[in-house]
Design a protein around this nucleic acid. Structure first.
Length: 287
DNA sequence: CCCCAGTCCTGCGGGC
DNA sequence: TGCCCGCAGGACTGGG
């Protein structure tokens, strides 16, 4: 479930390819659904071979590899995709191999067990079409508390659901949304338009805490073991999870109530009803 | 505008 | 033991 911390870890893990030259690009034939969205493989290959990698960035939950031609290769891992410099977890789910020269690594790989991920090549204009014009909100790490409140406070949506809206802010996914709200001490069903200024501050501070700490520990590798960094190593944040996938276990903060699981917008939410009271003032999240 | 259900995909685990 | 079903999740689409 690559979210902001996992995708940022992938980005940092492949920074050494900056300056390398693309020698070849080979899509694997294994995909039931093609991973290369656009353009078609032949044109894709023609436009990248011989180009030099100028920059490795991130937009929301996607890794952006910019070329000296001004085109960019966008890797969108979605649920199980990985961007790798080392041998992937399995051979059969390797989707794309990009051969490199002139740097420390000979190849950049895209691996995806479930195959919901995407790789596309875009011009600067196409990039803007995809992510500009309000289609993607500001990065969660680059958002002030005031801006977060401004973007969501008019909404009647529940705060947990709103945090997942990539048009409001980019990078938070299902796992970290539960973690953030638990640290903030805010109930996931609280309506955005009823949150107090102080609660927005708590949510914002918790968001930065959780995301930055998760980046430091290179993301969360869950029980299925799918998520890996660029060297195919596990992340370390999963042992710091406070509520996610911990239903019926004692809350690590109060140690009195058990973690509850509810469903919001067809996604699991985990929370502690003692540390995250459903109405009125919530406690300052600490722990 | 907002919300929800359905879709894509595969692997795993629960239940019978 | 073995099979089937349901679930997991990011982004998008279509309908209310």
């Amino acid at each position: 479930m690559p979210e902001l911390p996992e995708v940022e870890t992938m980005r940092r893990g492949i920074l050494s390819i900056v300056g390398s030259r693309i020698e070849d690009l080979r899509p694997a034939a294994c995909a039931k659904r093609p991973i290369l969205i656009a353009p078609k493989p032949t044109a894709f290959r023609r436009r990248v071979v011989g180009k030099t990698i100028a920059e490795v960035g991130r937009v929301g939950k996607r890794v952006v590899v910019r070329l000296d031609s001004a085109d960019a290769i966008i890797f969108e891992p979605r649920v199980t995709g990985l961007v790798l410099l080392a041998a992937p977890p399995t051979r059969e789910h390797l989707r794309l191999r990009i051969e490199l020269s002139g740097g420390p690594s000979d190849e950049l790989l895209f691996w995806d067990r479930r195959g919901l991920g995407l790789v596309r090549l875009v011009t600067p204009d196409e990039f803007d079409e995809l992510y500009g014009g309000g289609r993607l909100g500001p990065d969660a790490l680059a958002l002030t508390s005031e801006a977060l409140k401004e973007r969501l406070a008019a909404s009647r949506r529940e705060i947990k659901v709103a945090l997942l809206d990539q048009r409001a802010l980019a990078g938070v996914g299902n796992l970290y949304a539960s973690e953030i709200l638990h640290l903030a001490g805010v109930h996931p069903r609280r309506r955005c338009d009823r949150l107090l200024r102080q609660e927005w501050r708590q949510i914002h501070a918790a968001m930065l805490d959780v995301l930055n700490q998760a980046i430091r520990l290179e993301g969360s590798t869950l029980g299925d073991g799918t998520y890996r960094n660029a060297l195919n190593e596990e992340g370390g944040y999963q042992s710091h999870h406070r509520v996610y996938d911990r239903a019926d276990q004692p809350c690590p903060t109060c140690r009195q109530a058990n973690i509850e699981r509810i469903v919001q917008a067809q996604r699991s939410t985990y929370f502690c009803s003692r540390c995250q009271p459903p109405r009125g003032r919530s406690k300052k999240g600490r722990g």
